[in-house]
Design a binder for these strands. Sequence first.
DNA 1: CGTGATATTGAATTGCATCAAGCTAAGTGG
DNA 2: CCACTTAGCTTGATGCAATTCAATATCACG
Lengths: 234, 234
Amino acid sequence: MRHAEPYVDCTTCAVRADNFCSAVPLRGLGGLVHSRQVERFERRQTIISEGGPASSFFNIVSGVVKLCRSLADGRTQIIGFRFPGEAFGVSDTGTYTATVEALTPVELCRFPKARLNGLMQAFPPVQEKLLEMNYRYMGDYEDQIFLLGRKTARERVASFLLGYGDRFSRGMRGPDRGLGLPVTRAEIADFLGLTTETVSRILTSLVREKIIVIGAARSIHLLDTFALQRISGD
Amino acid sequence: MRHAEPYVDCTTCAVRADNFCSAVPLRGLGGLVHSRQVERFERRQTIISEGGPASSFFNIVSGVVKLCRSLADGRTQIIGFRFPGEAFGVSDTGTYTATVEALTPVELCRFPKARLNGLMQAFPPVQEKLLEMNYRYMGDYEDQIFLLGRKTARERVASFLLGYGDRFSRGMRGPDRGLGLPVTRAEIADFLGLTTETVSRILTSLVREKIIVIGAARSIHLLDTFALQRISGD
DNA sequence: CGTGATATTGAATTGCATCAAGCTAAGTGG
DNA sequence: CCACTTAGCTTGATGCAATTCAATATCACG
């Protein structure tokens, strides 16, 4: 269920501009190709596990993943999502800080830690790009901390729909595009620090208020983004 | 109330090893000294403001600061704290993503954006160090997201005391050291996504259970860290 | 077409917030 | 030196948003 053939051609890669590969000049592409390993995962497959030895860094070519933390008693919190062009994996600790699971079929370029370090040495702009990407993720984390600490359930759901609705639709491949969310109510709840029941109740209330429409295949269509903006609190 | 004299001597700086300055070789120290500007702030003073034009990067030489976000309606969330040897300021967006305020008297080295970029160009290890520091902060953020999303009030307070108790005491200068926390109940509440009343109630309950002792000058002494560990949930 | 996973809905419960005093300690100025 | 003020903290009573528990409905997929 996990292939390792080099489908992805760096010279035509759709997400090259978004990730650190764009900081590798053309003359370095040969080295880049040999540093990475293309892998595919299906929905629900675990890519890396929290606490496991941190060995690789991943660029997402297509698909969406979730980063989670859990407690022994079953409580789970989704820390964030990563979309095509984004990355996850080793930081500088010896172990992964979160479990990462595929929400859709995912194509990844895996870079073993040592290879990534080699690229950073050879091409300092790679580091710069990684720094820039991390600043992005830190901003997302700050948003989420505010949301979890101070927003009501209704505000959280509205913020989620506004902030992630279209990112998820873009993350879908093939005919699924539009406004399909590859996340269950339970996943939305785990992201927003709520329960599935609360998420469900709020979504149906938003439907009643004609602010959204819920379609088939977990699709949510936003009718009134202005109302959502008002509800979201900021 | 805000001095700008170069008190701090890079060659003897106590926090040099912790921040990116350690990535500037001795021969580059001259340039480093000219890139920075030493500043001091008193408790309660605002150092940078959320949304303001992002112009500088700051290394903390001594003291403690808090990073906050607020909504127009007054809701405030402390995103995190930064201690001596840590940093804050520009990311790559044009504006600061959080307001930063001094919790104690603070000594800072301010680096204008352009100067920092210059240092990064001249000394690639500077970038590497910044990347490493950011990974630290991202780990802290992930912890906080889990705490806010899934932990009970009691678990949050216990986690806070365990995780930050000694960091705050170390952050104090002079005779205040020991276990004094330079944070009010309201600040603890703003960090933990609670209210001051709830924090107060939980602290007094922990006192009754002989797990902590509350002394003068906002000091909290941990009697039974094992119990706190158990309460904190992980 | 049936079966397990996912979603909705309702009723009861509860953890924390809110509202409301009163308390304590540290100034501050007369 | 002591009344007065003020900021911070504690404690109690009450309310409510979201969880929990429980049942049913709907969807997705073999």
